[in-house]
Computed example of a mutant assay.
Amino acid sequence: MKKGILLVNLGSPDSPDPKDVKKYLGEFLMDERVIDIPELARTALVKGIILNTRPKQSAAAYKKIWWDEGSPLIVLSERLQKKLQQQVDIPVALAMRYGSMTIKKGLQELVDKGVDEVLLFPLYPQFAMATTETITVLAEKLRAEFFPNITIESVPAFYNKPDYIEVLANAINSHLEGTNYEHLLFSYHGVPERHIRKSDITKSHCKIDGSCCITPSKAHEFCYRHQCLEVTRLVGEALQLKPGTYSTSFQSRLGFDPWLQPYTDRTIERLGKQGIKNMAIVTPAFVSDCLETLEEIAMEGEEIFHEMGGKTFTTIPCLNDSDPWVALLAKWVKTWQTAKLETYNV
C-alpha cells in the first residue's frame, strides 16, 4: 500500500468580495455540526437572516487582512504543506473543509498519485464537533462514495502531546522576550455550551460547572473545553508562568445561546479596566493565522484594550509554517509510516 497525507484546515472565501463571502458563509453555517439545530430552523436562520446581513460585514473584515497572495489562512496552509513535503517522502496534499479547496479534491490528488492509505490530519490541536468531527465525518462519506479502495486513518487531538506543547511553548516564549507583558491571555475559538454536552460520551460528566474539566473522565477525549484548559495549563507549566499572570478565554461567539466563557472581548476589557498596561495574547485553537486572529484579535482586541487604557498589546502569531512546527509534523508522519497511531501516541 502507498501512503499519503491529507492536511485539512477550515477554509476561506475565494476573495473578500461579498458574493464570495456569502457563498462561503452559506456552506460553513449550514453545516449541521456548526449550527446544530434542526435543518428547517437552520435554513431559516442562515438563509433567511444571517446571509442577508453578515456577508457585507465579514467581507469588510476579510479586506482588512487579505494578502496580495490571497487568503492568509490558505497561503499559510500552502506554505506548511510545501515545507512538510520537503521533509517527507510520501505525497502531502492540502484541503479545506469549506470553500473551493475541497476534501474531495484533496483525496483525488492523493489517489491520482497512487495513494491508497491516507493519514487524515485535521489541523486542530483540540477536538470539537465543528472542526475535527465535521472533517472526519465528511472524509469518510467521500471515501465510501467516491474512493472505496482507499483507507483513511485520522490523527486524533494532539493538544496534550509533550512535543506539541514544547513547540507551542517555545514559540510563545520567543515572542514574549523583551515585551515586559503583565498578563498573557490564551484565547480559544468559542463553541456553544451544548456542543460540549453533545460530545460527552459518558452523557453525564460535562456540566461546565468549574470542576468537571479538572476531574478525570473518559469524556475528556472529546471535550473541547477541557482540552483548551489543558493547553493553557501545560504551557503555563512549561514556561513557569506565575499564577494570576495568565488566563483562558473564548472568542467569536455567534447568536444568543450560551457559549463558553469567559468571553475574550470582555476579558480584554476587564484587564484594561484593572490597570493592566501591557498584555499579550495567543490563540492556540488555530495553527494558522486567519480572520479570527488577524482581525478579531490583532485589530479589534487591540482597539478594545487601548480604549480601556492599555498601552502595549502583543499578538503572538500562530505556529503557521514555522520550522519547529514543520519538523514536528514531519516527525509524526515518518513515525506513522512505520507504526500505528496509537503506538507513537499522536
Rank of each mutant, 00 (worst) to 15 (best):
K22M: 09
G210A: 03
S15Q: 11
P38Q: 15
Y224M: 00
L120Q: 08
Y344A: 07
Q227T: 03
L40H: 13
K218I: 04
K2P: 01
I35P: 13
F158E: 00
R266D: 15
K63Q: 14
L51I: 06
Y164V: 06
M1I: 06
L73N: 06
V118S: 12
L94R: 09
V287Y: 02
T136M: 01
V191F: 10
W332L: 07
K334Q: 14
I268R: 10
E153D: 00
S58R: 10
E300Q: 13
T232M: 06
F305I: 10
L107R: 10
D323M: 13
I165L: 04
I281Y: 00
G236M: 12
I103V: 14
Q274Y: 09
Q261M: 06
T43E: 15
Q87S: 09
P156G: 04
Y188N: 01
V115S: 05
M1Y: 03
R197F: 03
V92K: 05
T151K: 04
I35T: 14
H205C: 07
L40S: 13
A59I: 07
M30N: 15
D112G: 07
Q337G: 08
T267I: 08
A41L: 15
N345T: 13
L107H: 12
A238E: 09
D163Y: 01
V111F: 01
V155F: 03
P262I: 04
L260H: 08
S154L: 02
E302V: 09
R97N: 05
I316F: 10
K113I: 01
L94I: 10
T215V: 15
T293F: 08
V46S: 14
N320F: 07
A238P: 01
R79W: 03
E300L: 13
L40V: 15
R79L: 09
M30Q: 15
K56P: 06
F256L: 12
G190C: 05
L110W: 11
E221V: 03
L229T: 02
T267A: 12
K105E: 05
E237Y: 12
K19V: 13
Y188S: 05
I150C: 02
C318A: 11
F121M: 03
